Each structure stands twice: as C-alpha cells, then as structure tokens.
Amino acid sequence: MAGDEVPTRIRLLEAAVEVMAESGWAAVTSRVVADRAQANNALVHYYFGSVDALRRAAVMHAVEKELEGPVEAILQAPDALDGLADAVRALVAHGPGTPGQRVLVEAMLHGLRDEELRTETKRQIRMFRDLLTARLAESQAAGRLRADADAAGLAVLLSALMDGLLMHVLIDPETDAAGSTAGLLALLRPSGAPSGTGGDDDDDDEGDGDGASRQ
C-alpha cells in the first residue's frame, strides 16, 4: 500500500496542474482532478485535506519542477551570466508554455489574495535570488561581472526579468526573449571579459565582449 501512496499523490498534483493551466484556479475541484488522475475522489481529501490545499500544493509542485532547469543552468554554467542566458533559453523554449509555466502565472495572481500561497511563493523566490546572488558574486570575483555591479540588487532585477519574459512569451510566443537577454547581459560584463556561452576563457577578445559598445 505504501508503494502506491507517492505515485497517486503525484498523479493528483499533476492532474491539478493540467486543469489549472487549462482553465484557471477555480476549475480545480476534487472531482475534476480525481477524474483526470483516474483516482477516487475521496483521495483528494485524504492526501490534501481540502481543495484549496490541493491548489496550493499543485502550484508549488509546478514551481519546483519549472525551477529545476533554470537552477541547474545557473549552477552548471561557467559563470552566472552564461547560466542566466541558458536558463532563459530553456524557460522560453516551449513557445506558448508548459502547463507548469502557465500555473506560475496563476500563482502570481492568486498569491496576492492567498496568504499561505504568497508565503510559499515568496520563500521560493528568495531561495532563487539567494542562489543567483551567490553565483553573481562568484562571477564578479572572477572578473566576469562588472566590478561596480551590486550582486544582490542584480539578482532581484534578473529574477523579475525572467518572470516578465516568461509572461511575455506566453502571450506572444514570437518574443525574442533569448536575444534580448543576451544583449542585456553583455552590458554587465567588464570590458574585455569573455562573452561566456559557446566560448570560454581562450576567446576573451572575440565576440561582443570588447569595449566598443560600453560607456
């Protein structure tokens, strides 16, 4: 019995994410989600206690899944700016978006009215900002980010940029989010620093890293 417990709960969460992405917050009911997950209606209340709790859990399930890619990109790239460029490319690669991405937008709206959801979403945002701040500080120490940049302030702005770009791409899939981000990130590199993605330390003087476009 214990072996079935986690898969059933996950099925319910993913069904709730799909329903919310298709029809919005209010469309997530115990019966609709149970039918979508091919589970007994009573299991929604068994696992989550209430429909509101299911909705919040579905949002956080979607947030965690959608943040996996950007977090890995930022951690694994040669520096934070490369990681951000990779994260934006991955985030907007799906055109009109995944169900999880559309649920992120629902979370932003309902977090203004639901204090529990707001608290959880705020925790996730702050964790992402802290991670980004640490990586930006590392890049700055390595000479890959302008010395006059404020790592913590940039983390706030760049996190908000990612959220905004995602929303624009969901509305207008032809938005050039990756190209626009690359242009902005180039301004944050010191004159002569490597441009990062696609070219590491050996090509410091090539690409858009020279000082001609900087003030």
Rank of each mutant, 00 (worst) to 15 (best):
L161I: 04
A142Y: 01
A149L: 11
D148Q: 09
D163T: 11
D163C: 02
A141Y: 03
A147Y: 05
Q140C: 09
A152Q: 13
A147D: 15
L165Y: 07
G143N: 10
G153M: 06
L154V: 10
A155S: 15
A160E: 13
R146S: 10
G164M: 04
A151W: 01
H168R: 15
A155D: 06
L154C: 11
V156A: 12
H168Y: 05
E138A: 12
L145W: 01
L154S: 12
M167Y: 11
L161C: 08
A151N: 14
R146M: 02
A160M: 05
L157F: 01
H168F: 01
A152V: 02
L154P: 00
L154D: 07
S159D: 08
L154M: 15
H168D: 13
S139D: 07
A141S: 14
A160N: 11
A155M: 04
S159P: 01
A142G: 07
M162Q: 14
L157R: 13
A142Q: 15
G164Y: 05
S139W: 03
M162K: 06
L158S: 09
L166W: 01
R146C: 03
A142I: 04
A152H: 08
D148C: 04
L166Q: 09
M162E: 11
G153N: 10
A151L: 06
G153P: 01
G164H: 09
S139R: 03
D150F: 01
S139H: 03
E138W: 06
L165Q: 11
E138N: 04
A160W: 01
R146H: 07
A160Q: 11
A142V: 02
E138F: 07
Q140S: 08
R144A: 07
M162S: 15
A142W: 00
A155L: 02
A141L: 06
L157H: 09
L165D: 03
M167W: 04
A141R: 15
D148L: 00
E138H: 06
V156F: 09
V156R: 14
V156N: 12
G143H: 05
R144H: 12
L145G: 12
A149S: 15
L166A: 06
A141N: 10
A160D: 12
D163A: 14
E138S: 07
D148A: 05
R146I: 01
G164E: 07
R144D: 09
E138P: 10
L158N: 06
M162I: 03
S159H: 15
V156M: 07
M167V: 13
M162C: 14
L166E: 04
A149N: 06
H168Q: 14
A142E: 15
D150E: 13
G143I: 02
Q140P: 11
M167L: 06
G153K: 12
M167N: 09
G143V: 06
A149F: 00
L158H: 04
G153E: 09
A152T: 08
L165I: 03
A151F: 01
L158G: 05
S139P: 00
L161Y: 14
A160I: 03
D163P: 00
L158P: 04
L145E: 08
L158R: 07
L145I: 09
L154A: 15
S139N: 04
A155N: 05
D150C: 07
A155F: 03
